[in-house]
Amino acid sequence: MFKFKFPSRSLLATIFIATATLTGAGAQAADKTLTVYTYESFISEWGPGPKVKEAFEKTCGCNVNFVSVADGVALLSRLKLEGAGTKADIVLGLDTNLTTEAKATGLFDASGIDVGGLKVPGDYKDDVFVPYDYGHFAVIYDTQTIKNPPQSMKDLVEGDPSQKIVIEDPRTSTPGLGLLLWVKSVYGDKAPEAWAKLKKRVLTVTPGWSEAYGLFTKGEVPMVLSYTTSPAYHMVAENTDRYQAAAFSEGHYIQIEVAGLLKNAPDKELARDFLKFMVTPGFQDTIPTNNWMMPVSATSQPLPDAFGKLVNPSKTFLMSSDEVAENRKAWIDEWLTAMSMN
């Protein structure tokens, strides 16, 4: 009869204990712990996380504790939320559009790593943040539906409106912001007109990449804004080359993902060791087929064949983080206006 009253307290206690034990996993054992804040898909079973943890723990004699948040943007918000009291030693998963704001929090310390030797298109240089992978944005299309994919941004913008694309919202997702910056890079001041034309092809704007890609794979829409590396997943894991990326002649915008260490990290040496480790094969090996992005330095094995079939942009667009931070609000407003007009 009183099902609803009786178990409350004991059940809560059970949950409390269960959660404490589960999350307290990192508190056990080893002398040193390295707390890494990163986004959810990094530490999922198929993500790079588990392998990275294993590899690093072998060399450092420490315990790696991952704390996950939804995505890169949430990472920054979480840091702002926690402020100086944050328990993070390393933050891994910001992208270059967010680094200016990240630095503005004053929580990060110089990495001490020379990033000049890394193979990152777009000439990325920074003394605080170290890149660990990159991917060019690209329009992925369904080869079964589209026989003549767009060959340039101009093609995409002015093409047949009945062939639809689904894009992400720049306010709530990094690929969405990426496309915004890409169009801006190609069209400059004429971006609003470009968007007004592109609007006719946009089927819908989703909050994030997952929803957009879900619509795409369900066959609802023949094109989606994603990464050049997306087809690699389908070729390697699903054994199909049905989904391919369209190469744009003007060039592609790049997303570079970075990691940084925090000023208040108790063991800075350990944190620096991790950053150093990040650009070695031990870490980079996991990037191609676990994170489905491009590695920034040498891997112990050559990349899988599928990666050879990917689009290799001739030109890379990358705006400086400062420029993005300064103009983002204005550009988003511009985008909103262009997209809201009928």
Partner: peptide, 8 residues
């Protein structure tokens, strides 16, 4: 956001 078709 998913079905609205755009930021309008």
């Amino acid at each position: 956001l998913m079905l609205g078709g755009g930021p309008a």
